[in-house]
Nucleic acid binder design. Sequence first.
DNA 1: CGACACCTTGACCAACGTCAAATCCGGTGG
DNA 2: CCACCGGATTTGACGTTGGTCAAGGTGTCG
Lengths: 245, 245
Amino acid sequence: MPLKLVEIRETPARTLGAPCSACEIRDVGIICGSLTAAELGGLQRIVSTVQCAVGQAVIHEGDPAEALFNVVAGSVKSYKLLPDGRRQITGFLFPGDFLGIALNDTYAYTAEALQATRLCRFPRRRMEALLAEYPNLGQRLLVEASNELVAAQDQMLLLGRKTAKERLASFLLALSERAARLDQSNSPVVLPMSRGDIADYLGLTTETISRTFTQLRRSGVIRQAERGEIEIVQRQALRALTEGG
Amino acid sequence: MPLKLVEIRETPARTLGAPCSACEIRDVGIICGSLTAAELGGLQRIVSTVQCAVGQAVIHEGDPAEALFNVVAGSVKSYKLLPDGRRQITGFLFPGDFLGIALNDTYAYTAEALQATRLCRFPRRRMEALLAEYPNLGQRLLVEASNELVAAQDQMLLLGRKTAKERLASFLLALSERAARLDQSNSPVVLPMSRGDIADYLGLTTETISRTFTQLRRSGVIRQAERGEIEIVQRQALRALTEGG
DNA sequence: CGACACCTTGACCAACGTCAAATCCGGTGG
DNA sequence: CCACCGGATTTGACGTTGGTCAAGGTGTCG
């Protein structure tokens, strides 16, 4: 992505035509799902919508953390960079996922849209005021952070101790299970990210990802469907590969 | 560590002789520091103290998560295992650190004492009740989880993209800075964990850790002090090594 | 003093990275 | 419709970092 200014269109507030209570991802997101009407109303007063084109950054590592986001549609990658350009993708975010939950003063990573993406934006200051008003909201955030922490620890195990094949198998299975939670269908698995992105997420190179895909395909565990989609043919075998079976 | 039953001595509640308000780590821990007297009193009603000998497990991966802990004295390693025994240490915990913040139904990792260790134990159910009563407490937990999340992302970058030398340099510097926050003195750095533990934390092997220590020693960046202690001779150089300088 | 765990060092090896080339694919313009 | 362009992906040949295996060395605790 060359240097290109982020052009985010914001609506000052959600239009009345699409209140939070009618949100398409209300059942998916931990934040907005299972809130009382009052809490939801509070959220609705501070939320705005942002739209991102492919490759646009939503937040930048090091920038003051002025807002939290909730992905509504599309998908996002978040990553950290070393001075020499080495990159580690820390997560792929899908509808319902939370972005910028770390309530620190600056963002710890950059987040960039993988597809045309729509997000709900919650200004941090107003969010904190809301937390004081609705304790339940804070608990939801805590649960969300908790889940992210568990995922991060799984990823540490993957990055520190798994082989290339185990990493890719774990990744595909996780994506598939995530998709199942989203839309009840987990086959084929949609991969909105490039091989390079997968590599930077799994701590490998594009070439190794490509070779490992070929290996999985040749052994009949997966099948190439459409471009950017793969079908899991032998789910049990893939699961076994996850931990070195 | 061979199979050995955990023998934890618990006091039903903190003795009156050592109330939370006089806690030695009150200024270090995020949870107990900066709470109101009422909140602290609430905590004190549900807390008990547990003592662990070297090698004893505080919690076990997969067990129902019945309590949270706060390290008071000593140190702890937390880790995840693969079926074939490969191990990833997800963190080293020191006084003031929180253990088991993931509010999920089972523990995501095992935690084992590196030294004789004393912890405060908060039963999860009673803790949740307290969260409802004192919203401020939940916010503290959220901040804590937030910080852990940031650290986890740094660790992903380390595990996914850094060389052995960069990993060890990052580790030593982080330990040193942690020690500085604890007791204002960061030289020499105390290493209560074995080479094997460091290896499993950094995604390397004992041999590579040992060789890399030798390399750093030979280049004059660090110096061997007492057994289990190293002195950072050239802090600037070590910091440069952290990101491939 | 001896057993044992931990650490260090050396020789060799393999998984994965690097470099390079071929192929595929979508988009563009004639 | 079709040739061409540029980026993404795949594949191959080869190199390197860090792993494996093995042999001492060192400190600790009965």
